[in-house]
């Protein structure tokens, strides 16, 4: 009995330590975004809002965030439009070929991004896609697609295909049965892959650095460039804090309205 209690306590301590380890960077960023010092220091030297003011005035960061949001949104939409029918095809067409196809679709997950990026630069320079929005979106779609296909396929594995058959016998065309029965059934997979895909696109530095060009500098690329030239800019810390706050608010709202965490 005593031993059990001891193990319970150890468990709790370990869990707490892991949680702390994960949370500390977030806390540090929030606290430091209000630090009056130009340089990183902990504990902070004084309270200021000037970094936030500077951010609101800074066009470059704002444009970069806008670019990131635009690229992520477009990439997710197109990846869903391609990935959902592809997954449905793999699910319906139960043959050895579909197995090969599904592992082929997942293969970008295994490839080191940097290797792929190098190939992409050369290829893009031939077809004149370097620095274009289309080129960047296309690359991000390839990054997102494996997540979409993986998650949608896993949702589809819970679909009782007789519900689709039932809809058909009740008078629904195959298209209508897809919209009314299949889509609602795979909604969890679609929502999660959209969220994941959005984060993958928003986070990507490797590929975007290689092919973004000057016109389409995404937020992480802009930050990376600044970091390389100026060092750790308190402005970047403030921007990160804003993004984080934004993410937390969205996550909480999504939880309240769709309780999305149950799909994870």
């Amino acid at each position: 009995m005593k031993e059990k209690k001891l193990w319970g306590n150890i468990n709790a301590v370990v869990a707490l330590l892991v949680l702390l380890f994960m949370l500390v960077p977030i806390i540090v960023i929030f606290v430091n975004s209000f630090n009056s010092s130009q340089f990183f220091s902990f504990p902070p030297e004084g309270f200021t809002l000037k970094w936030y003011e500077r951010f609101l005035e800074n066009r470059e960061y704002k444009t970069a965030i806008a670019v990131s949001l635009k690229i992520a949104t477009l990439s997710v939409l197109v990846a869903l439009l391609l990935g959902i029918p592809a997954s449905y095809g793999i699910y319906r067409w139960k043959s050895p070929v579909s197995k090969v196809l599904s592992s082929l679709f997942l293969s970008p997950l295994m490839l080191p991004g940097i290797v792929w990026a190098i190939g992409l630069i050369q290829y893009y320079s031939i077809v004149n896609l370097t620095g274009t929005t289309a080129g960047l979106v296309a690359a991000h779609i390839i990054l997102i697609l494996p997540y979409v296909i993986r998650l949608v396929l896993s949702s589809l594995s819970y679909l009782d295909f007789d519900t689709v058959n039932a809809a058909r016998t009740l008078g629904a065309t195959s298209g209508k049965a897809f919209l009314k029965i299949v889509l609602p059934a795979i909604k969890p997979g679609v929502i999660i892959s959209a969220i994941f895909g959005f984060m993958v696109s928003f986070n990507d530095v490797t590929i975007s650095t290689f092919i973004a060009g000057t016109k389409n500098l995404t937020y992480p690329v802009r930050m990376y460039v600044e970091l390389r030239t100026e060092g750790l800019d308190p402005l970047a810390v403030a921007v990160s804090a804003v993004i984080m706050a934004f993410t937390i608010v969205i996550a909480l709202l999504a939880e309240k309205f769709w309780s999305w965490s149950k799909y994870l």
Partner: peptide, 10 residues
């Protein structure tokens, strides 16, 4: 058609 496992729309 009445399916064996009913196939109701969940």
């Amino acid at each position: 058609f009445v399916f064996q496992k009913y196939a109701l729309f969940p």
